[in-house]
Design a binder for these strands. Structure first.
Length: 93
DNA sequence: AGCCTGACAGATA
DNA sequence: GTATCTGCCAGGC
């Protein structure tokens, strides 16, 4: 099981209406957030990248046009242009 | 081998 | 709340 698959699997674990930060996923997998970002870039459309946001709650990379839209459609709580991490952050088991 | 860059985050001012 | 700096891990040149 490569870290790639681990990340993809972990991201797919996030339910609708929830999100996770890079550091959250990284902590869950036992790696630094930087690694997650790198891997996310390698992954394809199989992952719900829009559910992966910065620790601040801002959508990654400036997908600031589509991501918020998808998240809002899934029921993700928003605080202005920022995701309400406090309520939308998914807890990995 | 060395340097630069990058889907990051936390600390500090 | 915004702006800057530093630390971390990999990959490309």
């Amino acid at each position: 099981m490569d870290l790639i698959d681990e990340v993809r699997s972990t991201v797919n674990t996030i339910p609708d209406g929830k999100v996770a930060s890079y550091s959250d996923i990284g902590a869950h997998l036992g790696v630094g957030p930087r690694r997650i970002g790198r891997i996310m870039g390698l992954l394809d459309d199989d992952v719900a990248w829009w559910r992966v946001v910065y620790s601040d709650g801002r959508p990654a990379v400036c997908h600031c046009g589509t991501a918020p839209q998808i998240l809002a459609a899934e029921g993700t709580p928003f605080t202005g242009e920022r995701v309400a991490m406090t309520h939308a952050r998914h807890r990995f088991d």
